[in-house]
Each structure stands twice: as C-alpha cells, then as structure tokens.
Design a protein around this nucleic acid. Structure first.
Lengths: 123, 123
DNA sequence: CACTCATTCAACAGATGGGTTGACTGATTC
DNA sequence: GAATCAGTCAACCCATCTGTTGAATGAGTG
C-alpha cells in the first residue's frame, strides 16, 4: 500500500505549487472573480490564465459558475481543507519541536551554542 | 506584494505534489531512513529515489545527515509548517463558513445587507 | 591494491507544464 | 447577418520533471 490517501492530493498540491495559481486563490479569497479578473494582474494571456483556472478547477480548489458569457469563479474550500488536513497530520512534528526548542533555549541559557537553523537555505 | 510569503512555497508544494515523495515523507514520519530505505517500497531505481530525496531536501522538507557511507534522512518540520500556515490562512473558508452563514441569517433578520466582502491580504 | 557498498552524477528519453498565437463558440447587439 | 465579447480550444515551442542505465565517488575490508 503505497499512497492511497486521496487521489486528489497530487492535483491539489500540484496546483498549489504554482505561484500564479496561489495568487489566483488569494484573489478568490476576497470574493468571486471572472477568468479575466484573475488573469488581469498576471501579464499572461487569457488562454494561459484559462489553463490555470482549469487546473485549479480540476483539482477541486475552485468552482465555476457560468453566468451569461462570463465564468464566475469562487473558492471551493474542501480541497484546501484536504491539503490542510494532510499537513495537519504531521503537525506534531513542528509543534512538539517548538516545545523542545523552547526547552532547549531555556536550558542553554546557561551554555552558549550555535543557533539552530529553523528554515531551509537558498541553494 | 504578490506572493512573497516564502520563496520556498512553490518548491514545497511542488515537492508535495508527487505521491512518491509524499510517501517518503510519511515513511520519514516514523523515523529516520536512508535513501535506500526510502526507495525500497517504490519500484524505482535508486537514482530516481535520490532525485526525489534531493527535491524534498531542496524544498526544505527533509534534512540529511551523512553518516559514514549512508545518508540518513529525517523530516524537517519547518517546511511542512510553512505550507500548513499558508493553507491555514484560508481556514475560515472551510471552518467559519457555517458560522458566517448563521451570522448572516441573524443579521439579515434586521437589515438587508448585500454581501460581506471578506478582505484578506496584508501578508 | 582491488572489492564492496550506498549513493550520486551524467547522459539520455519521454511526458508534462506553462506560455504563446490564432481560430472558434455562442449569446447579444447593431 | 455581421460585430462584439469572455472564454475555450488547438497547435506549437521550450523548459522542466521523472524515469532509465551506466559510470564515478569514497570510505572500509579482505
């Protein structure tokens, strides 16, 4: 059994992996937007934006309501929640870790030590 | 500022977008593993696994400790937390939804209001 | 010194991703 | 019936991703 959590997770995370699409999601968080609205701030063609929207849609991250000749998009929180849940199942790794860190800091208040690296570097 | 929360987010989500890599993360959650250990359940070459590990590593999702001639990998919770945080900022969309609705219904009992625009940026 | 072992590196192939442009759709309006 | 408008579709380009195989690395062992 290698990977069976959700068939959508790959699509969701993949969709989330693109900054343009994350941006669209953020825009959508302030209210519904047309495809054109979503494309506007991005210096890409409408066709490209349309593909992004489709990627978001097929990952289940947004829903689309075709009103007359404009397509109104809005967030579909379920998919975000799915990704969130997946990550949440690892939460103990960073919450426990912080407690440990705190503990360490308190302990090492007495002994100097090189600072631990909390975040990745840039290669 | 359009997308600047963390320069790593794209790499993180992209890394998370692959089922093999999510699987590796899950394995790593039960303890440290060598590259070979991580490759074993996956019917791919060691070289391919090595690339996956590198992707996880450069996204900051895991750290690697070279012990003698084996590379020991372990989870680096920070990156997971970063992704989690990003998603968390949209949490209201799937948790508060019901509360908001309830609120709305109560409000509109007194004054008809068109639509509350949830604004959210300032990141 | 040659061998083994865990892993990486290099070169390659094929698939997919994101972008472009240009043609198409389909309801509305002149 | 032609023009307009929002958006999609199709063809194409090029970069990146995932996988392969085979050689290289580098420490320890016989």
């Amino acid at each position: 059994m290698v990977e069976s959590e959700s068939p959508h997770l790959s699509a969701i995370f993949h969709a989330l992996g693109d900054p343009t699409r994350r941006d669209m999601i953020r825009d959508l968080a302030s209210g519904e937007r047309t495809v054109g609205d979503l494309a506007a701030p991005h210096a890409i063609s409408l066709a490209a934006a349309s593909k992004h929207v489709k990627a978001l849609e097929s990952a289940g991250l947004i829903r689309r309501e075709i009103r007359w000749r404009t397509h109104i998009c809005h967030l579909n929180p379920g998919a975000l929640a799915a990704a969130h849940d997946w990550l949440d199942s690892y939460r103990r790794f960073w919450t426990d870790r912080l407690d440990i860190l705190e503990d360490l800091l308190r302990q090492e208040d007495k002994a100097p030590k090189p600072k631990p690296e909390p975040e990745g570097d840039a290669t």
